[in-house]
Amino acid sequence: MRSLLMQQGLWAQLTAKGNEKKADEKDDKWVTLAEKAHSTIMLCLSDDVIIEVANQETAVALWTKLESLYMTKSLTNKLLLKQRLFRLHKQEGKPLRDHLENLNKILLDLRNVEVKVEDEDAALILLVSLLKSYKNFVESFMTGKETLSLEDVRSVIHVREYRQQATSSATESQASGLSAMGTGQKKSGKKKSKSKGGSKGFHPGDICRYCKEPGH
């Protein structure tokens, strides 16, 4: 969130230096930027967090409240963040992207309270957090490895996901093609059968109704 505010040129509204610099000015531009900073922060929050900070009307007050709630370096907060990390599990049906973003957010929150998670530990936690359907993949990936990095795990999981999506798409296309082919063959068979049954060709036993002679 801090990076987003900096990118949009709104971080100064939240710093003591920035507020002192503009304390006497209070011009329309500064007020507009402060309001924009407030709304930007609110848009980044989940509903349950918004409930806790809804009465904070300025960007500075809002940021201060968030820091007191979630950025405190107390032992209790560190414990809660570590519990979130160790209990992390990929939800069935949820996109892999969402799961990885959730992990990144937890790691960032821990870093903000000065809790360092070793890269290899984070990689192992990610592997353990995957669904049971990943079991063979994880065992194959770990075979023969002596070191592990979070980036390596992310990359190989993405590759697996892309391959599965490509295979699924190819299977669906093939099934659709076979279905269309089968439908076409059925229609063709019906036409041939109808044509054969409805044919009125020459029969040797027929007698001409004009000359009363058989054979034509």
Results as ranks from 00 to 15, higher is better:
Met71Val: 05
Ser168Lys: 11
Ser155Glu: 13
Lys145Ser: 07
Arg160Thr: 10
Ser140Ala: 15
Asp121Ala: 04
Asn112Leu: 10
Ser173Trp: 01
Gln174Met: 13
Glu120Ile: 05
Leu148Gly: 05
Ser173Gly: 06
Lys90Trp: 08
Lys82Val: 11
Lys82Arg: 15
Ala180Trp: 01
Leu100Ser: 03
Arg87Glu: 12
Met71Pro: 00
Asp98Thr: 10
Lys105Ser: 14
Leu127Arg: 04
Leu126Asn: 06
Leu81Phe: 01
Ser155Gln: 14
Thr171Ala: 13
Leu107Met: 09
Ser149Met: 06
Leu124Pro: 02
Leu148Gln: 08
Lys82Ser: 07
Gly177Asn: 09
Ala122Tyr: 02
Leu81Ala: 01
Tyr70Phe: 15
Val159Met: 12
Arg111Lys: 14
Val113Ala: 05
Ser176Arg: 12
Glu114Thr: 10
Lys105Arg: 15
Val153Tyr: 02
Ser179Met: 03
Phe86Val: 14
Ser133Leu: 05
Leu124Gln: 12
Leu79Met: 11
Arg154Lys: 15
Asn136Glu: 11
Ile106Pro: 04
Lys73Tyr: 09
Thr143Trp: 06
Glu114Met: 03
Leu79Ile: 11
Lys105Ile: 10
Val156Ser: 11
Lys90Thr: 11
Thr147His: 04
Ile106Leu: 01
Ser155Cys: 05
Gln174Trp: 00
Tyr134Val: 10
Lys105Cys: 09
Arg163Asp: 10
Leu110Met: 08
Phe137Ile: 08
Val117Gln: 04
Ser176Val: 01
Ala122Leu: 00
His158Phe: 12
Val117Cys: 08
Phe137His: 15
Ser74Cys: 08
Gly144Lys: 12
Ser140Val: 09
Thr76Tyr: 12
His99Tyr: 11
Leu103Cys: 07
Leu150Arg: 15
Ala123Pro: 07
His89Glu: 14
Val138Glu: 03
Lys73Arg: 15
Leu85Arg: 07
Asn104Met: 02
Arg87Asn: 12
Leu148His: 08
Arg160Ile: 04
Ser169Asp: 11
Leu80Ser: 04
Glu172Met: 10
Leu85Met: 07
Leu108Asn: 11
Val138Trp: 00
Glu151Gly: 06
Ala175Thr: 06
Arg111Tyr: 04
Ser74Glu: 04
Val115His: 00
Gly144Trp: 10
Leu96Pro: 08
Leu108Pro: 00
Val113Arg: 01
Leu103Met: 15
Leu107Ser: 07
Ser169Met: 13
Lys132Asn: 12
Leu108Thr: 13
Leu81Lys: 10
Asn136Leu: 12
Leu130Glu: 09
